[in-house]
Design a binder for these strands. Structure first.
Lengths: 229, 229
DNA sequence: GAGACTTGTCACAAATGTGTCACATTAAAT
DNA sequence: ATTTAATGTGACACATTTGTGACAAGTCTC
């Protein structure tokens, strides 16, 4: 669904938020200080960052500016968290480009609502949401997939799965990662859901179904070039 | 790039918005009341107007009507800024030509996204008040819709819904977007209103009703070519 | 004020998507 | 070659989403 990075030095807070997010099927990352936050953000490119302003090592504003200065991390949505709730600070955060601002102490419910709100705005129109590769075209704005010019009807789950596979084409996606990213299963629950969906995807891809390769005991991988030729 | 006129009586708000716009390289104009707004709009012909509805001298509705009545200013895109809460009837009636709504209080980032969205839409879809496509004709001035030459009676809500669907024909319109653009619901409120109106529209479109396609758990889409043949 | 519209909500029906299971098949390990 | 574990596959039940008709509140017209 969406990946969210929680940046806060208090572990209790992180866990509280993480629990709530996971229950709503988000993929959760955590960072305890500013430097770690920037490092993880650059590596994982989450969809949204919950950023506490009071941080050791590098404070929230510094993190913010770093992220906005970097082309890769620049489009990531950011919700500011802070203990202080002054108006000028709010304006400061927002005018810096933050997507929203939540004051501590906050109710998890409120935070969830803000998160959903921000994601629904940001997520649907990311630039460069179209992946093309000769045979196929994946349009994340339109939520459509074309194979050899023809549109292929996919359900939401199938689409999400295909997005993940194609966006890291030629790279193994581990079962656990897929389950976490698409279904939000955090523990490696014993489930055959993934297999079933892979099967359905292959079916819909027809003759190109074999592009989804099985890496036994590891996961699946989408091959950008058709190896069967 | 693009010129944007901000119409709001509160200077703080204007400045906050202006700052954000300038950072993204837009040309910014400002007006503090309705009369000034109309004057500047006519003279400068901005690409987009951010229009607060509560204004001294001449309120937002008046400004809106003036602008839409004037041939020169008529094609300017308009984003309404409204107080949170239910949209009253006047808005419903007039909102037909507005390109989007944003409810106060809003975050600048959100506003920026909406602005980009509207501008890109307007550019790709030169805002002709009449849309034709063989079978059907949509007249936004007269608020009339013709199907195969025959006029079809639509209520204002149905008409607005159809406008949005047809103007982005062959494109999925997500439930949330539709609810926001037609009803002004900012949060993805749980409601069946949309479904009901879709049903009514399909009914009135008769044999062409199936052109409104359901994309399960995503939204609806109007198909410009009749796929049932 | 009566009557015709319009519109949002509700309850229920229909349609569709999704996860699990049992069993078949395949690949790896010994 | 045999065993073992992982994956493929079709069927099925359940959950979710959408379609639909009815209704009540609110508007508008006359």
């Amino acid at each position: 669904m969406a990946t969210i990075l929680i940046v806060d030095d208090e572990q209790d807070i992180r866990e509280l938020i993480a629990m709530n997010l996971q229950r709503e099927a988000y993929d959760v990352l955590e960072a305890a200080d500013g430097l770690e936050a920037v490092a993880i953000a650059k590596k994982e490119l989450p969809d949204l960052i919950l950023l506490d302003l009071m941080l050791p090592e590098k404070d929230g504003y510094g993190v913010f500016q770093d992220l906005k200065a970097n082309k890769k991390t620049q489009p990531i949505a950011i919700i500011m968290l802070t203990a202080r709730g002054k108006l000028d600070e709010r304006i400061m955060g927002l005018s810096l480009g933050a997507d929203d601002y939540v004051c501590k102490p906050f109710s998890p419910k409120e935070l969830m609502l803000r998160i959903k709100n921000v994601l629904s705005r940001v997520q649907t129109h990311p630039a460069g949401a179209i992946t093309q590769n000769g045979d196929f075209k994946l349009d994340k704005n339109e939520l459509k997939f074309y194979l050899c010019g023809e549109e292929i009807d996919l359900t939401i789950t199938e689409f999400k799965l295909l997005v993940v596979l194609i966006e890291s084409a030629d790279t193994v996606q581990e079962r656990g990662d897929l389950l976490r990213r698409i279904w939000g299963y955090n523990d490696m629950i014993q489930t055959r859901t993934l297999d079933t969906h892979i099967k359905r995807l292959r079916e819909k891809l027809g003759s190109h179904g074999n592009r989804i390769e099985t890496l036994r005991s590891v996961g699946y991988q989408f091959n950008s070039s058709d190896s069967s030729n």
